[in-house]
């Protein structure tokens, strides 16, 4: 708990929390974004519930017409009309970006917990964990994806049960790549959090007769994982953006779709600005969500939120 780095992070957290941000504005924007996204997916999956599949909810021509009526704001209305035209296509990419990120961070977490425990408490397993972490953190993620997708031709190993869940099985290759890579980073965050749990906690657990694994499971991990939340949130935010690398192995996520449309209409700046806004909305949502999780699991006297 007295680890200076961890304290600095926690103090930083507290500071951002006390800034009276335009909370209602954020909530409103978040509600609009997610409301639109959910309606959009629902509409397109159910084969055109409100408007034909892939068609905007509001006609871009109508928006442009509004702009013609108010010449002073013409540019704004033109941009909005542009966004309205292409957002439906991008929303499907947002879906894959979320699926890639959520699945990989979750599976990566499942791997990261044993990796970090092995690293902190293991004997020979600690070297195994170190080797894994260094290998995965020390090589480019894109290279890892290429090895999995092109090198190993991973698509041929997708089991029949999972085959066809996504239109393109490259998604599975991407999930495997992101999971393996993210596990290494998450393990590092969790490792440093485990080290900040007081050593007396493990001793006390052993003293009542818990085995080492039980003491880790019931005493150290519940505390360490709470300490790990801020760092882990960082990894989640990175992964949202790194998931764009899946475009290079043909996964039609947000970046890939943006790029495909831009190379068609040559409006690169506009298209990627639009994509940037969508990524930003995802990132802000993720960090808000993790803030809420951190508050939810806070325990009096433990970590930043408990104070």
């Amino acid at each position: 708990m007295s680890e200076p780095v961890a304290d600095a992070v926690r103090e930083g957290e507290t500071a951002t929390r006390t800034i009276p941000a335009g909370r209602p504005l954020v909530v409103l924007a978040g509600g609009l974004f997610w409301g639109w996204l959910l309606l959009r997916w629902l509409n397109d999956w159910l084969g055109g519930l409100f408007v034909p599949r892939g068609e905007p909810f509001v006609s871009p021509e109508a928006v442009e017409a509004l702009g013609a009526a108010v010449p002073a704001l013409r540019g704004l209305f033109d941009s909005t009309a542009f966004a309205v035209t292409y957002l439906p296509a991008l929303s499907a990419g947002v879906w894959l970006t979320i699926v890639l990120t959520a699945t990989s961070i979750a599976l990566g977490f499942v791997l990261a917990v044993p990796l970090s425990v092995a690293r902190v408490y293991g004997r020979w397993t600690s070297y195994l964990s170190l080797a894994y972490t260094e290998l995965l953190r020390g090589t480019p993620l894109l290279a890892q994806l290429f090895v999995i997708y092109y090198g190993l031709n991973f698509v041929q190993y997708v089991p029949p049960l999972l085959d066809g869940v996504f239109a393109n099985n490259a998604v599975w290759a991407a999930i495997v790549g992101f999971t393996l890579n993210s596990a290494a980073y998450q393990a590092e965050y969790i490792r440093s959090a485990l080290l900040s749990v007081e050593s007396g906690q493990l001793t006390a657990g052993r003293a009542i007769g818990l085995t080492k694994l039980q003491a880790i499971r019931y005493v150290v991990l519940p505390q360490g994982l709470r300490f790990a939340i801020p760092g882990w949130t960082n990894e989640l935010i990175y992964l949202i953006k790194y998931s764009s690398l899946a475009a290079f192995i043909t996964v039609p996520e947000l970046f890939q779709r943006t790029n495909a449309i831009a190379s068609d209409n040559f409006r690169y700046t506009a298209m990627f600005s639009l994509a940037a806004l969508l990524y930003l909305a995802l990132v802000i949502s993720a960090s808000r969500l993790m803030n809420a999780v951190e508050d939810r699991v806070a325990i009096p006297g433990l970590g930043a939120r408990g104070r």
Binding site: E198, G200, Q201, T203, A204, G205, A207, V219, Q223, G301
Partner: peptide
């Protein structure tokens, strides 16, 4: 019983 209590903090 420990000097620093070592109660499970969570």
């Amino acid at each position: 019983v420990f000097q620093d209590f070592n109660l499970f903090a969570h």
